[in-house]
C-alpha cells in the first residue's frame, strides 16, 4: 500500500569549506508527516534544496518519484508592511506560465478552495502586508497548495510564531495530511511541536543523524541536547 516518494541513499553534500550532510539514508512514503529537526547549520535547508533539485549531492543518490509535484513554503519572504497585494492575489501568483494574464474560472475556484482549507476566508481581500505572522504563514501555505502538490515542504514555517498561532497553523497542516493524504516534510528546530504533529522524524546533528517513527524520538530527545 505504501508508496515511496523520496528515497535517499548514502547521500553526502559538502561545500568548499565544510561537510554539511554525510551518509544520509531515509525514505519518505506517501501520506507520511515527516518532521526534520536539528540545530541551525546542520543542513536542514540544504537537504530541502537537494530534494528541490537546486543542489546536487556530492556523493550518494536521491530518487524522487517521477512526476512528483512539490509545494514548497520557503523560510523567508520579502513581504513588508507596505506589501500591496491582497491575500487572494498573492496566492494567485503561483499560477505561472505563458498564459492569458487574467485568471480562468477554474483557477479562481481553486483559489477559493485553498483559502477555505487554510481558514483565511474572512480576510482574503486584505493586503498581505497588514496580515499577522500566522496569517502570512497560512497565505504562504495556501499559495503552495494551489498546484495540487503530492508533497508539501514547510521550512521553519512556525519559527516566528507564538505557541497558539503555531498550533493553529500545524492543525491546518495536520488536517491536510489526514484528510487529503498530503505528504508533509516539516522542517523545524522546535522539539515540542515535532513530538506533537509528525508521525516520523529525521533528526540531523553535527555528527550524524537518527530517523524513525515518532515514538522512537522521545527517548533520544531526553539524552540529546534538545529541550
Amino acid at each position: 500500500m505504501s508508496e515511496t516518494l523520496i528515497s535517499v541513499e548514502d547521500l553526502s553534500l559538502s561545500f568548499p569549506n565544510h561537510q554539511v550532510l554525510s551518509d544520509l539514508t531515509f525514505k519518505v512514503q506517501r501520506g507520511e508527516f515527516l518532521g526534520v529537526i536539528g540545530e541551525n547549520g546542520v543542513g536542514k535547508t540544504t537537504l530541502i534544496r537537494v530534494i528541490l533539485n537546486q543542489l546536487k549531492p556530492s556523493a550518494g543518490r536521491i530518487k524522487i518519484k517521477n512526476g512528483l509535484k512539490i509545494g514548497y513554503v520557503p523560510q523567508f519572504r520579502n513581504v513588508d508592511v507596505e506589501y500591496p497585494l491582497s491575500i487572494e492575489d498573492f496566492i494567485s501568483l503561483n499560477f505561472t506560465g505563458i498564459k492569458l494574464p487574467w485568471l480562468s474560472r477554474k483557477e479562481k475556484q481553486k483559489i477559493q478552495t485553498v483559502i477555505k482549507q487554510v481558514n483565511l476566508e474572512h480576510i482574503s481581500k486584505r493586503p498581505l502586508g497588514l496580515a499577522s505572522g500566522g496569517e502570512k504563514q497560512k497565505a504562504y501555505l495556501a499559495q503552495a497548495l494551489i498546484n495540487d502538490p503530492d508533497l508539501l515542504i514547510l521550512d521553519e514555517s512556525t519559527a516566528s510564531l507564538d505557541p497558539n498561532t503555531k498550533r493553529e497553523l500545524l492543525d491546518v497542516v495536520l488536517r491536510l495530511n489526514k484528510a487529503l493524504g498530503l505528504t508533509i516534510i516539516f522542517v523545524s528546530h522546535d522539539m515540542q511541536v515535532i513530538h506533537e504533529y509528525p508521525d516520523h522524524f529525521l533528526w540531523l546533528t553535527k555528527n550524524g543523524y537518527t530517523a524513525g517513527p515518532i515514538s522512537e524520538l522521545h527517548n533520544d530527545s531526553k539524552e540529546g541536547e534538545y529541550v
Binding site: 520557503p74 523567508f76 520579502n78 501568483l93 505561472t96 498564459k99
Partner: peptide
Amino acid sequence: FRNLKDDSFDAVGAKTN
C-alpha cells in the same frame, strides 16, 4: 505577464516555481 508578476511580487516563491 504571469511569470513577471510572480518574479516581481514574490521573488523567493518564483525561484521554487
